[in-house]
Nucleic acid binder design. Structure first.
Lengths: 346, 346
DNA sequence: GACAGCGTGAGGTACGTGCCTCATGACCTA
DNA sequence: TAGGTCATGAGGCACGTACCTCACGCTGTC
């Protein structure tokens, strides 16, 4: 019923004719090259709008005779989630080889913002069209993003946002909503008792947001549950195990735990050592080998997941848009929070 | 091997040179045109494999000078989920206009397989490159899919599969897993009592699969809960309300309900009329205006969703692959089941 | 030994955009 | 008035593939 026989799509030639200028001028405007008087540029813009012209992606990629280069900057170390992000990039890289898209993943030393700054400073328009960054909340990083943007590299933030910077868009989940969902589930799971919270670090923006969402819903809707913590495990297995152990020993009547950071192998170990695995309802974050196994074993009840593949896909789609029409607004689907039980593991 | 062209991707020219044939012959092989001896074709295939040649998607779309045409065949009527599928197609159609992709959505009379058969019979390679079908489990439909496939139109099934047919791929969620997840949640929500099941029709493959998954997990892991039903509401609001009313009146000790079909407005009404809204934990399917409002009001606790936008995106990606390389295997991300609470509504 | 038919080679044009060179006229300044 | 800069026009080649025409040589057949 929606079969509309629209005519041809507008091309640059149509734009030139409508605006009463030459093809070269249209090209200059489209690609932001110098040598066009503002009033002439306006005529071209008007024609573009009137014809609803959009540059043909296929032709554009073909004509520039080189791939779109997207660089991912991911913190290294032993964080299982970051590893799955990197794996998702590698998977995607194979699929995009015949779509004129080259992906590269570069790791920088986690916990060291200056390492990321150095990486960003080394980037220019000659090396990449777009940089996708998992960045800590640090002013020096924001400045480096602004600088590399000025050098002609579009920047997207991934997983954790940096609102003050020149980043073009944020790709990631709504962490407040994730925290609220965790509270909503634990609240229904636990009739009464105490609920413990284990974070990575409340200095991280995403962890802070999860905690806020969680406390809000629990206080509002499940006032019968008492909150214990948060304690911090610094996304490290050993530190998380230590934190969980002291929490478990101090509170024999704990009926639920929300682990909103990484380091879940430590939490699982602590639950095992105290023989509480299966007796406490646990909600954690990010599907990894550890959390998958723990779900299957019944040690974890629910895992909230960022869907690394989806995030990478969205980042690439946004990168294409940004690189090909530097000014246009980006439209992208929001990343959904995956909620996984033992029963819908993929 | 004199591959000094390390960085460059192989082109048709490289294939022709390596195979020792002309460009025209490579073209004939690539596009399955007649006029090539089998042994020559083999030489070309070998060269393609040796060079790992993949046709350039951008150039290919550009050269054929016409869009890829994808037709969606969706059951009409007042099914809110199908409407959201159609809406997702419309959203997507705007975004793909500059990607040489034309989408059309055609509705056929639900409940009437012959209407779908007629639509399929009217399709040929002149009208579309790929048809994406939400099809009932019917032998006549399977035959029509086989026929249109022979006429050169690739077919994908959406939402509900038709394994016996020539459909190239199924795009949809794992309905067994959806049922299992519902059971896993309701089992944790309800300490004891009875759990009611309301289906649309157990004659539908997807509904049947959800029911099987649900009963399996409930029986295995939550034996303290007694199952009531399933009753059928035929995806209709009024019929579902009637079915729910009699279930609610017959079982005052009902502590949970799994509604695995459509018609949820009727269920919500029944819960309201019996003043049980909020006192019974309810898991339903598909995010719609009705289920969203009910989540917010607390009448529903969890909604499992198929993610129409994701399904449409996956279908389009698969359609591109199928249309451009008819024999290749399709690689596509699985569609994930969305699990929605009041707290992570989008 | 002429002829049809088939497999193949050779070469061209087209798709829409990016990017380059060169020419031209307008305007400014010394 | 000469020289310079700037905005613009005109035109062309390139990207990799699709698809077309034409010609050639090799079969087998009557």
């Amino acid at each position: 019923m929606d079969d509309k026989l629209e005519g041809r799509r507008a091309t640059v030639h149509d734009v030139a004719r409508t605006a009463g200028v030459s093809l070269a001028t249209v090209d200059r405007v489209l690609n932001a090259r110098p040598g066009v008087r503002p009033e002439t540029a306006e005529k071209v813009e008007a024609a573009i709008k009137a014809l609803d012209f959009r540059r043909d992606l296929s032709a554009s990629l073909l004509a520039r005779a080189r791939d779109l280069r997207v660089v991912f900057l991911i913190p290294g170390g032993s964080n299982a989630f970051m590893e799955s992000l990197t794996a998702a990039i590698a998977r995607r890289a194979r699929a995009t080889r015949n779509e004129r898209l080259t992906l590269a993943a570069v790791q920088y030393h986690a916990l060291d913002p200056s390492a990321l700054v150095a990486r960003l400073d080394g980037l220019g328009a000659r090396e990449a069209d777009c940089a996708v960054v998992v960045a800590p909340d640090d002013p020096a990083v924001a400045r480096a993003i602004d600088a590399v943007t000025r050098r002609g590299v579009a920047v997207l933030t991934l997983v954790s946002d940096l609102p003050g910077s020149a980043r073009r868009q944020f790709i990631g989940i709504d962490n407040q909503a994730a925290g609220r969902s965790a509270a909503s589930l634990l609240g229904r799971f636990c009739a009464s008792g105490k609920v413990g919270i284990i974070a990575g670090s409340l200095g991280l923006r995403d962890h802070r947001e999860r905690f806020e969402g969680f406390s809000g819903v629990l206080g509002r809707e499940f006032a019968q549950l008492k909150v214990v913590g948060p304690v911090e495990g610094f996304d490290d297995d050993a530190a998380t195990e230590a934190a969980a152990m002291s929490m478990l020993e101090a509170h024999p009547d704990l009926s639920g735990i929300y682990s909103l950071g990484a380091g879940n192998a430590g939490l699982v170990a602590a639950l095992g050592r105290t023989h509480r695995a299966g007796n406490i309802r646990v909600v954690a974050h990010e599907l990894t080998d550890t959390t998958r196994d723990a779900l299957r074993a019944g040690t974890l009840d629910v895992v909230l997941d960022q869907n690394p593949d989806g995030e990478i896909r969205a980042a690439i789609a946004a990168a294409r848009q940004v690189a090909l029409s530097p000014d246009a607004e980006i439209h992208s689907d929001p990343i959904e929070i995956g909620i996984f039980l033992r029963d819908n593991l993929r």
